[in-house]
Amino acid sequence: MSGATWPLGLLWIGSVIAVAYGSRPVSDRQLTRWATRFDVVIAEDWRSHVSAQLRRVRTVRWGAIVVGTNLGAVEIYVAAIDLERAAGISSPLTKMVPFAAAALGAIAAELSLARPSGGVRSASLAVRRWTDYIDIPWIVFVGVCLPVSLAASVAMLSRPEASTQWVWLAPVGCVLAVLAITAGINAVVDRPAVSVDVDHRHVDDALRADSAHHIVGAAVALAGVVTSGALMVVVDGPGRLIPAVIAFVLLGVWFGLARTARWSVETARLQRT
């Protein structure tokens, strides 16, 4: 019995760095950039509150990614004990786990945001809807992945040379992505507002939009990667490269939605009406 411990060491170092990066305080510059991205002005008396909220959600999201990556890296853990036993452990399932964890983490982050406590409670009569916080085409994309992955799975079953062990994985991954979006965006819309003050409400809406972008981004990556994986099994020849490229593009989409995409809730509301 011989193990390889250096990959595990690298994984742990990476995990510690990721946790430290995710939980670091939000600087003034980052806060300003975030406010610009979501087209809001943060009142001076709310800057510390918003910083604390952003730090909390980032910590939870990165924590979930680290946990998911470690769960998905079960091969590395087994290899540290017994190199030979590790060979067959990696599977499409372990590759899916980090994406599913990221989606769940994005939802957990939203649920961790501050809520008003008891006493006299006020509510704005402005209607909150999914479309205030995220572009619908991304949600449609995840919905479309489900029938595509089902078709790929059926095609997989009709190929005698293909392994059918993981045939269920892509549709299940897509269902998970759809569920993550449904539960996540409902949590975003239904989270009680902490203030009815109009400036605070705009910032609160920006926090919702931020959460929605992270949830949908992770769901797009999850559905896209499992569907691409299924397509790679059923497509022959150099055409297999196309789903692989799509998978990488979707990872970029996730990053874009979570970190750079600009969004204005007010503009989205105006367009709706």
């Binding site: 009569l125 209607v127 989270r191």
Partner: peptide, 25 residues
């Protein structure tokens, strides 16, 4: 009162039961 006073005009959509219940606890 807000409907009678015109603050909430006819045709205006109200938040969902779930949203108001959540905001007001």
């Amino acid at each position: 009162l807000q409907i009678r006073s015109g603050v909430l005009a006819p045709g205006r959509r109200l938040p969902t039961v779930r949203q108001l219940a959540s905001d007001l606890g």
